[in-house]
């Protein structure tokens, strides 16, 4: 017993402060938040529990359902866009390109900028005016003879949320490129050579050698973009503002509920957001944990 304490005591003590902080601030507060979502808490004042009423109200609220729909569309667009450009750029760059460093640096730089700052310029670019009063991208499209592509961007009720995915893709594609580039470079040259020796066509080489080697990278990319996407907030606040209907997502709904003082509703939205993220993250973490233990 004393031996064990002697052996495991110090490492546990060293990690204890962080473990306690995360235990309280993550797991403890998730619990308190869920508890709050079951009450009628207004600005910290509560008269008691109301069961799942906040949840049933939310799921029968058209605006909230619309915000969930927007979130799903945004996530799909964001994932498809970043994976497409990220992979394409990495593929173009993977075999010695002159000036590779410059291309990489430029493709990646938007990542260093905050969503709030990029939102300033994208609000201008995605200006919804058309015709003579068009500015931003609409004006640009007109100037290069693509005027028919002018559209109302994020103000459209059905497709508006796609317009918010455009700056998000601009900002994160470089990150995905960096991941894929590292993935490409991690494939041993002998593997490609061996496949070529066996007379594999270039397509078969990709199909049977390169894609399987890149699939862990693709999984990481999906997890990273997916969980960022489900939390989208800053960009929408900077481009459209909190009150704009066409770009509502759960995070903006949560902020609106909070500013109205409806703490219990805000807490319920937070819990729903957590569940959505957890569906994706927990299997991934469990998978990693198992892999780690079996090492």
């Amino acid at each position: 017993m004393r031996n064990k304490l002697h052996r495991w005591g110090p490492p546990i003590l060293l990690i204890a402060p962080s473990a306690v902080l995360i235990g309280v601030f993550v797991y403890g507060l998730i619990g308190v938040n869920f508890n709050t979502s079951l009450t009628d808490n207004i600005r910290g004042q509560t008269t008691g529990y109301v069961g799942l009423e906040n949840y049933t109200t939310l799921f029968s609220d058209d605006t909230f359902m619309y915000s969930l729909r927007n979130l799903a569309i945004y996530t799909l667009a964001f994932l498809a866009g970043t994976l497409f450009f990220g992979f394409l750029w990495a593929w173009l760059l993977e075999r010695g390109v002159r000036g590779e460093g410059i291309f990489r640096t430029v493709y990646l730089f938007p990542m260093a900028v905050s969503f709030v700052a990029s939102g300033v310029v994208w609000r201008w670019l995605l200006n919804s005016n058309t015709g003579d009063s068009a500015s931003g991208l609409n004006r640009g499209l007109d100037m290069i003879g693509l005027g028919f592509l002018q559209n109302s961007w994020w103000t459209d009720e059905t497709w508006g949320i796609f317009a918010i995915a455009v700056p998000a893709i601009w900002q994160l594609s470089g990150y995905i490129m960096a991941l894929f580039l590292a993935g490409f470079r991690g494939i041993p040259e002998e593997l490609r050579e061996a496949a070529r020796m066996d007379g594999a066509s270039e397509w078969k080489l990709y199909r049977h050698v390169i894609f399987p080697q890149l699939s862990p990278v693709a999984l990481s990319a999906i997890i990273i973009i997916g969980h960022m996407s489900l939390k989208v907030f800053d960009l929408i606040m900077a481009i459209a503002g909190q009150t704009n209907y066409t770009t509502q997502v759960p995070a903006t709904q949560m902020w609106i509920a909070f500013t109205r003082g409806e703490y219990s509703v805000a807490a319920a939205i937070g819990t729903i957001m957590l569940l959505v993220v957890a569906v994706m993250i927990v299997p991934y973490l469990v998978h990693n944990y198992r892999a780690e233990r079996n090492r």
Partner: peptide, 13 residues
């Protein structure tokens, strides 16, 4: 796990 959670899930408390 704390890295992935949406902070909205702890914001009110």
């Amino acid at each position: 796990f704390g890295m992935f959670i949406p902070y909205q899930a702890v914001m009110i408390p």
